[in-house]
């Protein structure tokens, strides 16, 4: 039976929770795989190697930078889950800041902390086989990926933009109809275009689509009334490093 392991690095637990949130499918999945390491769900831990490792979170401490290599070595297929694991997450906002100053702003005794100056994606440290994007990931994409691996095929994960899914959902375009700033044209699909469906512009939590047009998007955001500072803030949120090129800055 295929063995499945779930690992956590710096993160909110939301992406691994997505697996427990598959209420209709969880027991069926559990019947097809042997869950060998999933601390959020079970205290039973089996030794590696593992057929599939799901990795949540980003690398932010010296110890974690070591631990991810041991996990890679013990895993046949390694899949990263979500904005933290694929792009460093919101905590990557430290990468262009003074992390010592950040630590002293939050903690009375920064000297008690053991942290790196950067938050980096898993792929910056080890080879990654598949990436699931999003903050959080879409549980449909997670089930598709697990199903595909059990069937011995490649998972079907779109790289097109949110705009395609938005049209398919028959949403009214928030940019055209209401002049709202929206990152949909440059953001990877997968969420189901939920923000426009609720009348707000996409804020890019799945990171950039495969071929984003940064300059055209900048014009669109300016036309919607955003200042350069606002545009910078919009890109510099959940997948700051992945959007650096689209945003046209060196962050």
């Amino acid at each position: 039976m295929t063995t499945l392991a779930v690992w956590k690095f710096a993160s909110c637990d939301g992406c691994q929770l997505s697996l427990l949130d598959c209420e209709d499918e969880l027991l069926a999945v559990a019947g097809r795989v042997r869950i060998a390491h999933f601390l959020e769900a079970s205290r039973a831990v089996l030794p590696g190697p593992y057929d599939v490792s799901l990795v949540e979170g980003s690398i932010t401490t010296p110890a974690d930078a070591e631990r991810i290599h041991a996990i890679r070595d013990a895993s046949r297929v390694l899949i990263t889950l979500g904005a933290c694991a694929t792009a460093g997450g919101i905590q990557a906002l430290r990468n262009s800041a003074d992390v010592a100053e950040y630590a002293s702003a939050v903690y009375a005794r920064p000297d008690y902390l053991d942290t790196l100056a950067t938050s980096t994606p898993i792929a910056a440290h080890v080879d990654v086989d598949y990436e699931l994007h999003g903050c959080p990931i879409d549980k449909g994409q997670l089930l598709e990926t697990i199903t595909a691996l059990l069937a011995g095929r490649k998972p079907n994960l779109p790289a097109h933009s949110v705009c395609f899914d938005c049209k398919r959902r028959n949403n009214v375009c928030v940019v055209v109809a209401r002049g709202e700033p929206c990152l949909g044209p440059v953001t990877r699909a997968g969420c189901g275009a939920i923000c426009p469906a609720f009348g707000r512009g996409c804020f890019g939590c799945f990171g950039p689509a495969e071929t984003p047009n940064g300059p055209a998007e900048a014009d669109l955001l300016r036309a919607a009334g955003m200042s350069e500072d606002d545009i910078r803030r919009l890109y510099r949120t959940f997948t700051v490093s992945a959007f650096a090129e689209v945003a046209g800055d060196a962050s």
Partner: peptide, 20 residues
Amino acid sequence: PPRFFEAFLRGRRHTEPPDI
């Protein structure tokens, strides 16, 4: 690991803390 939310919230718009 520490993620420093209180530090990087500084400089964000007053509309952003709920999502962040």
